[in-house]
Amino acid sequence: MKKWLGVMAWVVAAQAAAEPVTIPAGPYQPIVVLDETVAELAMPAFKLDATPVTFAQYLDFVTKHEKWRKDKIAAIFHDGHYLANWPAALTIPEGYEKKAVTQVSWFAARAYCAAQGGRLPTLNEWEYASLVYRQQQGLSDQAYAQRLFGWHSNPTAYSLQDMELNHSQLAYMHDRVNEWVDDFQLLITAGDETDILSGSCGDSARFLTDTGEASYATFFRYQSRSNYRPQSTTGTLGFRCAYDME
């Protein structure tokens, strides 16, 4: 049923979002420990887009929501390179229909998701979903770490690959784009001194439950994204949306 819906959605209109997948409730042990008193979180169920949002889907959004066109967007919502590779306000680059949309700021990503009745996933939701995905795929720690380091070696090549959109399970969690999350800016505090983890040192160990390469790769994803501004846009940073259960 789900698969049929997915196919139909794609056939009827490439712009239509495929059916989001349900991420079941369960325990989640964060690899990056932001709160030293909490080792395990009870994650409620939620829904997440199976794939990152595509250029075609994003075009549909800006067509309906003028405020987010590249020629209309307020300066405070982007860094000057929003949708930089679009030839015109309502034209995506040729052949980009099924690629993950990039050059979108955090503000724009949130607005897109809100327009779909959703929101950006939280950091914990996204990472929990990533673990679910690794289990589904049978992805070993080593294979997972290698995939992430491989991505970091040539992120542009990964982000420009087409996607199949008729997935009934999570797809492309680690091999297309890095993805915005709602609370991407990390911080920890020691008393009244905030430490924004913007990173002035090689001190990852105090945030990690172990120093294996899989945990490190995950930390690196958190940490580097934490150094973006909400206005930042790059060719390797996209997003997918989350939805509350009805």
């Binding site: 992120p155 542009t156 002035s200 580097s224 150094n227 390797t236």
Partner: peptide, 22 residues
């Protein structure tokens, strides 16, 4: 190559507040 990533510069030859300059 295009590989977007946050970066910083830390000169060991400088004597400054690292959280500001670096």
């Amino acid at each position: 190559v295009i590989a977007p990533m946050p970066h910083s510069m830390d000169f060991h030859s400088g004597t400054v507040a690292a959280d500001d300059k670096w």
